[in-house]
């Protein structure tokens, strides 16, 4: 379980409070998504939960281990994808996976078999090209493969499907659901509402630094009843939540 208690974050003394007492509990084996407009504090929360960013107040627990600067026990259990890349552009996908595997102290045999499987699953090139020459979607796949290599029990994914094609997303979604059924907990942020509406089972909305709601799929489906005529009412409801108050916006020079 991931437990987030009363997180406050301010980037500067005089600046606004980006997170104003965020509380969230993510049960084991669930696919939790965090929704929010650009600049709502999603990535800040992800960085704090990952233990790479300081918080002003509050606590984060992963399996009863508190996330602190010098706590390393929980790190081996977690796989991460951040919006900003974590790969070395001058390595090939295989070399990158080998490198990350070594950082997680995987033995040689396990490492080579997992690399082989990940390369095949994500259809990554093994032609010796460096990651810098990959497309955006391929780079996202490399990040996802790196997050999965040490068989983590928790996955914290910030915009993991950025640029990835529809067919691959379906395969990844199927894998995620399989992993969740086996007890892996997911904490995802994404703007691809169609993907998350069909993939995730818990939905939280972060607005103005606070969690507005955190609910499960049946409840969300009930709330989405007004969009029952849509093919994907949950997606339509989520889109309406995110678009609220922005519908009338335009640019003065656009006729």
């Amino acid at each position: 379980m991931i437990r987030i208690e009363n997180i406050h974050k301010r980037y500067s003394k005089k600046g606004p409070e980006v997170l104003q007492g965020v509380d969230l509990e993510i049960p084991k084996g669930s696919l939790q998504v965090l929704l929010g407009a650009n600049g709502s504090g999603k990535s800040t929360l992800v960085h704090i939960v990952s233990g790479i960013m300081k918080r002003n107040d509050g606590r984060v627990f992963i399996d009863d281990d508190e996330v602190t600067i010098d706590a390393y026990k929980y790190r081996i259990k977690v796989g991460y994808v951040f919006e900003q890349p974590m790969y070395v552009e001058k390595l090939t996908a295989i070399e990158q996976l080998e490198f990350v595997g070594k950082m997680y102290k995987l033995d040689k045999q396990t490492l080579s078999s997992r690399i082989e499987e990940l390369i095949s699953f994500f259809e990554l090139p093994d032609d010796g090209k460096y990651i810098e020459s990959y497309s955006k979607g391929m780079k996202s796949k490399v990040s996802l493969a790196c997050a999965l290599i040490h068989n983590p029990q928790y996955l914290i994914l910030d915009e993991p499907f950025d640029g990835i094609d529809f067919v691959s997303i379906q395969a990844i979604g199927k894998l995620f659901r399989q992993m969740a059924a086996a007890g892996v907990t997911f904490f995802i942020t994404s703007h691809q509402y169609d993907v998350i509406a069909s993939l995730c089972d818990r939905f939280a909305l972060l607005k103005e630094g606070k969690i507005l709601f955190n609910t499960d799929l049946p409840d969300l489906q009930q709330r989405a009843h007004e969009f029952a005529h849509e093919a994907e009412p949950v997606k339509a409801y989520l889109e309406s939540l995110m678009a609220s108050g922005e519908g009338g916006k335009t640019l003065s020079w656009v006729k």
Partner: peptide, 8 residues
């Protein structure tokens, strides 16, 4: 970031 999140 990779150094921070891994056990390296």
């Amino acid at each position: 970031r990779l150094l921070r999140i891994s056990e390296c």
